[in-house]
Design a protein around this nucleic acid. Sequence first.
DNA 1: TTGAAAGCGCTACCAG
DNA 2: CTGGTAGCGCTTTCAA
Lengths: 335, 335
Amino acid sequence: MATIKDVARIAGVSVASVSRVLNNGPKVSKKTIENVLKVVKDLNYTPNANARALVTQKSTTLGVVIPDLIDPFFASLANGVEQVARQKNMQLLLSTGLVSAETEMRAINLLIERRCDVMVVHSKKLSDQALIDLANKVPGLVLIDRYIEEIAQRCVWLDNLEGGKIAARHLLALNHQSFACISSKHQIDDPLLRLQGFQQELKSAGVDIEESLIEYGEPTLQGGEMATQKLLASGKRFSALFVYNDAMAIGAISTLEDNGFKVPSDISVLGFDDVLLSRYSRPKLSTLNYPIEEMAMQATNIGLELTAKQADMNKNSNYKHIPRLVKRESTNYKL
Amino acid sequence: MATIKDVARIAGVSVASVSRVLNNGPKVSKKTIENVLKVVKDLNYTPNANARALVTQKSTTLGVVIPDLIDPFFASLANGVEQVARQKNMQLLLSTGLVSAETEMRAINLLIERRCDVMVVHSKKLSDQALIDLANKVPGLVLIDRYIEEIAQRCVWLDNLEGGKIAARHLLALNHQSFACISSKHQIDDPLLRLQGFQQELKSAGVDIEESLIEYGEPTLQGGEMATQKLLASGKRFSALFVYNDAMAIGAISTLEDNGFKVPSDISVLGFDDVLLSRYSRPKLSTLNYPIEEMAMQATNIGLELTAKQADMNKNSNYKHIPRLVKRESTNYKL
DNA sequence: TTGAAAGCGCTACCAG
DNA sequence: CTGGTAGCGCTTTCAA
């Protein structure tokens, strides 16, 4: 592949001049510009971004760390970052496959090796301290979907507790009195907080939720189906079901209807996240909107500011987001 | 950020030695290894991949070009590449946002600038010739979901025509005799070929499909809904509907049921692609499986071989894939 | 307006 | 087994 030297030689100018026209540098004669551009085209020359990154000390690269690409939630997150990337003429470097603290750390390190200017990291397994250390090492690192007080100005997160409360208020307002919950068995804070918020708000209204009406499962369609079967097997009745996420909720509806319960006339089902899926389900899923794409864009922009040192670093900055209720068809007034 | 020189200086050895222990080079004393490793850890040193790429002339980077991240079909494609990437200790560089030949070309060029070792490209807008030129310039470039005879050994593709035929055979075998089709209005070959195959096989069985029972729409849920409305508005009856893709098929089912038709008892609906969505729909969607993830992995491996020059370059290689019928609940025997 | 040259961080070759 | 050093392709002074 042709190098800048080849271009210089054939154009009969110095590499410095070639570099100047390539970077719209100042003080280049029109003649040189045209000359160089012609040779660039003839040789089909493409500058080497690695060499460029080495000397300029910036990679024009945005790193993203997510568990996987298949989950539409994470796809939306990546998409948010990608939008900013395109707008800023930068490239997306992706690290996935996160199952443990070790793999998360590995994914992040690979991005550091590549010297990404900014990194948007979705980490659930690494410790607060590990993440704080990382943030100190990498100026452009921003956490998404996680809150750590010591680096609050580097965290873009959703208030899951409040989300649970909003869910409870919605169902309460629809006159429901007997509730069930499906949570995730994954060991992260999110499901715990959503459930806590839900229970707290219920309790404020003088309603308790029986232990046997709280089930746990994998945060997938199948997980939702299995948890619902266990719920049904308890023999206890309920008219409203709050589910950890949309995929599980859709699985729950499936199982409910297979067992002769109509949604929402017999049982109202409320999901969480508002992924694309929720608009495809029948009945269309009522859920809480998690503005992940918007949050990803914000996180990316914060990272960009951080690296440009334009950041005010005002500790007052608050990147907390509140989920928004999206009422569709799966929740209804309890007669 | 610490460099290899810092490590060398503090460890009291040469940069050459540091490089050796970092790359498991041969002939390094245990003492040196331990010494260097300690300093690496103390300094929290991370090697610079850009510098490495510059000297070794390989980036350990896999490039992927897809239209977007949101469509689960493309997410699966990216996921296939990512799996190979992880396995080979390489990184994923992603380029999206393809809407025209220009943006496709731009996305590919960005990847070339980064000197990706292999590039898996999903291009629908660029001309055959442009792609052939690109393939000649980039040894590790492989096309996915497209077939160009001149570079057949660099193309991993699906036989859409055969897919249409398989669809027709399935519906015919279920005793259907009156058919409708929903195709995509996007100007690419895939929808055309699927429809052609469908019609060809029908004709072989002596069945014709009326022009008014072929509708076109955007390849989305809404597109499927709208196309179905138009179909219904024609007043013509049909018992089997073949739809361009799963999202449209789910939209079609939605509209069909809203208009009092039961799926599959009144009308059988058959999708295409077998994205995750199809397992979430009610009734579960019968569809044709497009093994995109598997194909992406194959494409990546071909690219890897191509760059390693291990490629046999045997013109006989055939990377054609045939979709596989997945019978679920949305198609049934016509009484 | 242009060219020469230093050097980004690293690997790999050659001596020792 | 180890160190010195050339050079990957590029940008960016500094002089001319």
